[in-house]
């Protein structure tokens, strides 16, 4: 490192010389503290320049391409909501026919993955295309105004699952998309979170090395839709992992081959109370609110048991250790 102080560092020059590959550039129109924008940059950074992207409709597509501008630094194509899987399949077949080794990525939000685009993804997986599909999960249709999706967690408030006399937020449970995807007998399917950038990169690199369909599911807090300060996006994401509500796991051909252990599981209340979408569970004396809090705690406890998440010793890669910093930034490698 050069220790000479320099007051006249050229911003222009610095932007051009960042020691990392950025698949998404600045100037995109994501909200303040957007988890998805961060996740997409981390994914493209690890995937590298030799990729093409098919992107389903959703926040990511909207905020990166306000016509006539684009924030993408890699070949990128917008499909429609339901067919990112199909477009990616076609791209992959075309590149294969040309004898090119460029990897195809498919990006979708939880709406485009869990609900609308599901049949196309299922087909892509079943046909065994060499595509890495990345689902940026912000747990509702945020782009269109926070409507519930099948990824919205139980009891969360959205505009289409409002709490009231009938229901305490969303009635149904969050769909276990990872197991469903893995049931296609694909070589690799994993979950990860923006709270652990090194984990995202590690998993993207692993998936990039696999010839065949792979799937990465990234938990991305949405400050607007979840109702928390944009400054807290990482904190909220970390708590989702530390409470057990979002298990960070890896599956190979349906087998659980790895999980990020939770060193000290935190009560779900710590996660829920940071978000306005769960405020009805705290602002009422309603007995149903208490029940729902217990229900969500039970879901977390079930995850911890089911995926064997409880850590027994201090592990450098557990939910507390995986984000440890060192002087000089070595941990993010």
């Amino acid at each position: 490192m050069n220790t000479e102080k320099n007051s006249a560092i050229s911003i222009e020059q610095l932007r051009r010389n960042q020691p990392r590959f950025e698949g998404i550039k600045s100037g995109h129109r994501a909200c303040l503290g957007c988890g998805q924008a961060l996740a997409a940059r981390l994914v493209t950074e690890a995937a590298g320049p030799d990729v093409v992207v098919a992107n389903a409709t959703g926040c990511l597509e909207i905020f990166t391409t306000p016509w006539p501008e684009s924030a993408w630094h890699i070949p990128w194509m917008h499909s429609v909501f339901e067919n990112a899987g199909a477009i990616a399949s076609g791209m992959e077949a075309a590149l294969k026919a040309q004898g090119k080794s460029t990897k195809v990525l498919a990006f979708g939000g939880d709406g485009g993955t869990f609900d609308i685009g599901f049949q196309a993804i299922s087909g892509m997986l079943e046909r065994g295309h060499n595509v890495l599909y990345v689902c940026f999960d912000n747990e509702a249709y945020m782009n269109t105004g926070i409507q519930r999706s099948s990824s919205t967690p139980h009891a969360a408030m959205t505009t289409t699952s409002p709490p009231g006399s009938e229901r305490m937020g969303k009635r149904h449970l969050k769909k276990d998309i990872l197991t469903i995807v893995a049931a296609h007998h694909i070589p690799y399917a994993a979950t990860t979170s923006i709270a652990y950038p090194s984990d995202i990169r590690k998993k993207v690199r692993r998936a990039m090395d696999i010839e065949g369909p792979t799937f990465i599911h990234i938990h991305c807090p949405c400050p607007l839709g979840w109702g928390h300060d944009g400054a807290n996006s990482i904190k909220v994401a970390r708590l989702a992992v530390q409470t057990g509500l979002f298990p960070v796991i890896e599956l190979e051909r349906t087998e659980l081959i790895g999980s990020m252990p939770i060193r000290h599981p935190k009560p779900v209340v710590e996660y829920l109370k940071m978000q306005q979408r769960f405020r009805h569970l705290f602002t009422t004396k309603d007995a149903r609110a208490r029940e729902e809090l217990e229900h969500i705690q039970a879901l977390a406890d079930h995850n911890i048991k089911h995926f064997n998440l409880q850590g027994d010793t201090m592990d450098a890669l557990d939910s507390d250790g995986a984000d440890t910093v060192r002087r000089g930034g070595m941990r993010w490698a």
């Binding site: 550039k25 100037g27 995109h28 129109r29 391409t65 306000p66 501008e69 684009s70 924030a71 630094h73």
Partner: peptide
């Protein structure tokens, strides 16, 4: 749209 053009918007 050309890539990186979002940088025009501050």
């Amino acid at each position: 749209a050309w890539g990186d053009t979002s940088c025009n918007y501050h």
